[in-house]
């Protein structure tokens, strides 16, 4: 029964799974960039930059991702239309990527901030006393040390993001959950299809967790 379902739907499942994995991966890259910028803003001396970063993090923490997805995909084009900008449409893939990146970016911001603050202040004092400017101190001394403490949290965030992609099914992004619904609509194999989807998520997340452990061990030995 399940075998038959797999055989007849493996193409669509593979494509859906591929979409899930790639949107998680690409959004993690953007989220890391957003998180890096936001965390540096949060740690900067400028009150305005700090406020912007904190507001962003608070907003993402306080708004469910599903609401954010609706806002990006439906809300913004509607607002633009009302403001007189007609014909603006945002592709579902782009909306998904923006939603995921913004969402994970806020958590990455906190992870990176924590990692940077965990580095002994003596490190930056030593670097500054040598005459290194702030950006070089960050890039050469602080961030490389911070990354080590951040890796477990980043992998954890990636696993969370990977599962959060399922929420994008509500705006019609063709990821695993969305496509599972489509297949169920055609086959009516409700239990079997959700079991297949569940196993795919579970196995992927477990593998990601194992991969994380390997990376962690590599970094720990790197010294």
């Amino acid at each position: 029964m399940i075998i038959d379902l797999l055989v007849s739907n493996y193409r669509i499942l593979l494509r859906a799974f591929g979409n899930t994995l790639t949107i998680a991966l690409i959004s993690l890259v953007f989220a890391t960039l957003i998180g890096l910028i936001s965390s540096l803003m949060n740690l900067s001396r400028s009150r305005i930059l700090r406020a912007v970063s904190r507001f962003y993090v608070a907003l993402i923490r306080g708004v469910p991702m599903i609401v954010l997805a609706f806002m990006v995909y439906f809300g913004l084009p509607y607002l633009l239309k009302k403001m007189g900008v007609s014909g603006f449409r945002i592709p579902v893939y782009t909306a998904s990527l923006i939603t995921m990146s913004l969402n994970a970016g806020a958590y990455m911001s906190e992870i990176i901030r924590g990692g940077i603050q965990a580095v002994d202040p003596g490190q930056s004092e030593a670097a500054r006393s040598l005459g290194l400017p702030y950006n070089k101190t960050m890039r050469l001394i602080i961030v490389p040390q911070a990354i080590k403490t951040m890796v477990p949290a980043i992998i954890n965030q990636f696993i969370i993001s990977f599962k959060d992609t399922s929420l994008l099914s509500v705006i019609g992004f063709a990821e695993l959950t969305n496509q599972t619904q489509v297949i169920i609509g055609r086959t009516n194999a409700i239990f079997e299809m959700w079991a297949i989807a569940g196993v795919l998520y579970f196995v992927s997340c477990t593998l990601l967790g194992q991969l994380g452990k390997v990376v962690e061990r590599k970094l720990a030995n790197g010294n």
Binding site: D120, G122, Q123, E125, A126, A127, S129, I141, P144, Q145, N223
Partner: peptide, 11 residues
């Protein structure tokens, strides 16, 4: 400058 706790770059 030389510090009490050395502050060598461990990486």
């Amino acid at each position: 400058m030389v510090f009490q706790h050395f502050n060598l770059f461990p990486h």
